[in-house]
Simulated assay, not measured.
Amino acid sequence: MDWTDTHCRVFHRLLAPDARLYTEMVHAQAVIHGDRRRLLGFDPVEHPVALQLGGSDPGHLATATRIGVEWGYDEINLNVGCPSDRVQAGRFGACLMKEPALVAECMAAMRAAAGTVPVTVKCRLGVDEMEDYGVFLGFIDTVAAAGIDTFVVHARKAWLQGLSPKENREIPPLRYDWVDRLKTERPALRIVLNGGLGEVEAAVAAAQRLDGAMIGRAAYHEPYRLHLMQVALFGGEARPRAELLRALRPYVEAQLARGVALKHISRHLLGLFHGQPGGRLFRQVLSERATKPGAGWDVIEAALAATDPACA
């Protein structure tokens, strides 16, 4: 949330032409009552792109789904895996794993509203003391009975009390074996693995033995890895970082002409040279100069000039 806006997704589409992109989680009520152009607008190059919703009211989720379909999204996804306090207070996210019947009701309403557009779920293995594969399988079966065949599974459970969202991404142990077992026992379902897949080899292995791999913060903080995953899974030659970034120039200049400040785009580029010689200077130039009024493409060229030519 607050990270993957349309500028980020356009950049990621350049890096990974064959990936399916997801929005940040947007609450159904925000979709219904908020600024839809700001919340839902996206560039055509982003396709295929999924709208991820949060919420627990079947009627609201159905309405938000219809709106998402009208805006042209290729998939509508319900997040029942986010463990933050703010999400829990609104009775959505991971706490809904305790209420599989309600999730099934929500998904049935969304599916009815979506027409031919796929509706999917992102979930955890469980929450709090739930430490039973059978309970997890029961959740999947209950939701699948509502006509849902695609599940993105973050292969950790979530602690709703005592751990921050960051800790919930790191402390509960990963249980890939549960997800592999789920695919074996429910082969008709499409199962996508999420969690701990920041390394290219891990993501490729998951995508090859299951039905896909979802990459979150690793793709954001080290976006070049996303490009390497694209190459490993779909072929072709890896392109240099600078070449990829310069391919973004027409989009950046079009946005600047519309009055978008460079800082709103450049913040998504900071990790492109992560771990490379000159990477710190690249981030520094962008961070310091992109925030100035009237900043333009020359700032990005100056940042590129600060990197080691061998890495660019």
Results as ranks from 00 to 15, higher is better:
Ala114Leu: 01
Ile148Thr: 11
Ala206Asp: 11
Arg249Ala: 12
Met97Gln: 13
Val117Ile: 15
Arg186Ile: 11
Leu197Tyr: 05
Met97Val: 04
Phe11Arg: 02
Gln255Met: 13
Tyr133Asn: 11
Ala16Glu: 03
Ala28Tyr: 02
Gly90Ile: 02
Ala305Ile: 05
Leu269Trp: 14
Ala303Val: 01
Ala238Lys: 01
Arg267Glu: 00
Ala207Lys: 15
Gln161Asn: 14
Leu286Ser: 13
Gly72Pro: 12
Pro172Asn: 12
Thr116Arg: 15
Arg86Pro: 11
Ala144Thr: 02
Lys98Tyr: 10
Pro48Gly: 09
Asp18Leu: 12
His47Tyr: 05
Ala303Ile: 01
Ala19Gly: 05
Met130Lys: 02
Met229Thr: 12
Leu125Ile: 01
Asp308Glu: 14
Arg37Glu: 12
Val87Asp: 09
Phe42Pro: 15
Ser266Leu: 06
Gly93Ala: 03
Arg241Cys: 06
Gly198Thr: 10
Ile148Val: 12
Gly59Val: 12
Glu75Ala: 08
Ala109His: 08
Glu99Trp: 07
Gly279Gln: 11
Asn79Met: 02
Gly279Arg: 03
Gly259Val: 06
Gly271Leu: 01
Gly275Ser: 05
Glu167His: 07
Leu281Asn: 15
Val192Phe: 04
Phe136Cys: 05
Gln208Asp: 14
Arg209Trp: 07
Pro173Val: 09
Lys157Tyr: 04
Ala218Arg: 00
Arg289Gln: 14
Pro83Cys: 12
Arg249Thr: 08
Cys106Lys: 08
Arg9Gln: 01
Val153Ser: 09
Pro240Ile: 07
Lys122Met: 05
Gly93His: 02
Pro277Gly: 11
Leu61Met: 05
Pro100Arg: 10
Leu210Asp: 10
Tyr73Asp: 01
Ser287Gln: 08
Ala312Ile: 11
Leu14Trp: 11
Ala108Trp: 02
Val26Arg: 00
Ala155Tyr: 10
Ser266Tyr: 07
Val80Tyr: 14
Trp159Tyr: 10
His274Phe: 13
Val299His: 10
Asp211His: 15
Leu182Gln: 06
Ser266Trp: 06
Thr65Lys: 07
Tyr220Asp: 00
Val69Leu: 03
Ile265Glu: 00
Leu96Trp: 08
Arg190Trp: 02
Leu226His: 11
Glu201Ser: 14
Arg225Pro: 03
Ala50Trp: 14
Glu70Ile: 00
Phe11Ala: 03
Leu304Glu: 10
Arg37Tyr: 04
Tyr220Ser: 00
Ala295Gln: 07
Ser164Ala: 11
Glu167Ile: 06
Ile215Asp: 04
Ile140Gly: 00
Ala62Thr: 03
Arg289Leu: 12
Ala213Thr: 08
Gly147Val: 04
Gly147Tyr: 09
Glu70Leu: 04
Gly126Glu: 05
Lys183Cys: 06
Glu24Lys: 00
Leu269Asn: 04
Leu53Val: 04
Ala218Lys: 01
Gln255His: 12
Val200Asp: 14
Gly55His: 12
Gly134Gln: 14
Leu244Lys: 07
Glu201Cys: 10
Cys311Lys: 08
His154Gln: 13
Val31Tyr: 02
Glu288Gly: 05
Glu46Leu: 03
Lys263Tyr: 15
Gly54Gln: 01
Ser56Glu: 01
Arg37Ser: 15
Gly216Ile: 00
Ala254Ser: 10
His268Phe: 00
Arg86Tyr: 14
Leu210His: 13
Ile191Gly: 03
Ala207Phe: 13
Thr291Gly: 15
Val117Phe: 07
Thr6Met: 08
Asn79Ala: 10
Gly68Asp: 06
Pro48Asn: 04
Ala218Thr: 00
Ala302His: 13
Gly212Trp: 14
Ile215Thr: 02
